[in-house]
Design a protein around this nucleic acid. Sequence first.
DNA 1: TGCTGTAGTTACCAAAAAGTTCCTATGGAG
DNA 2: CTCCATAGGAACTTTTTGGTAACTACAGCA
Lengths: 125, 125
Amino acid sequence: MTKTYNIGVEATMEVIGGKWKSIILCHLRHDTMRTGELRRAIPQITQKMLTQQLRELESDGIVCRHVYNQVPPKVEYSLSERGESLNLILNKLCKWGEQQIDDRRANGEEITLLHRDDVKLQSTK
Amino acid sequence: MTKTYNIGVEATMEVIGGKWKSIILCHLRHDTMRTGELRRAIPQITQKMLTQQLRELESDGIVCRHVYNQVPPKVEYSLSERGESLNLILNKLCKWGEQQIDDRRANGEEITLLHRDDVKLQSTK
DNA sequence: TGCTGTAGTTACCAAAAAGTTCCTATGGAG
DNA sequence: CTCCATAGGAACTTTTTGGTAACTACAGCA
């Protein structure tokens, strides 16, 4: 009945794993975003997956959902404090991937990165 | 035909995502390990998944596979140079998860972490 | 009146990931 | 001779994850 993890990384991947969550979180690093903005920022995601993943992130305490009571609906998402604590990790995950893509292209692979991240790595302190 | 990523983190998660890969990699941070050692270190993994994930990590250039030509067989796995470049990220993924587990337990959840990571975070330089 | 944009739900289906079971080969221990 | 440990493979099933299409509500606009 007690939830058991063997190693910390399991708990982390439970939160940021899956096809979409880390991507959504990377976008939310910069701004608070509306549902439609997120959908346009992640063109391949469907409305269903976007909502579903955001709901899970919300119930894990990673993102905040702010509903404006108006029609047509307006809902904004942003990183919670707990979500912000992932910023450094998200930055590094982006950078590492960019580096691999560069390496692979230098190696002759046909591979493209559409949006390079311009976030400066914060110091680890 | 050209492989396209929208954001760096996609490429990273392609490599370390899934239920087992990040766990395997965390264990290999410390030592070169034999197949059986890994299997014992990750009790819930099956032989099949272990082999499969290690093969994928190998073909992504993250781990090295060293086969000793002897009977009974002996095979060792270790992080490649590219794999080592994930060390800092893996450490942070572990630490973040541990922190969350602590928070959740402090919050009354029944939750256990069997193996706390004792790796010191390296400086980012 | 009918169309648009918004955020979301639902039922259903497909694909990917993971799990189960049984199989291989062989030197050495007893 | 039999059994063990080792690393892995093959066939198959189950579970999880992701995708499709059709639907809601309502203000604003022409």
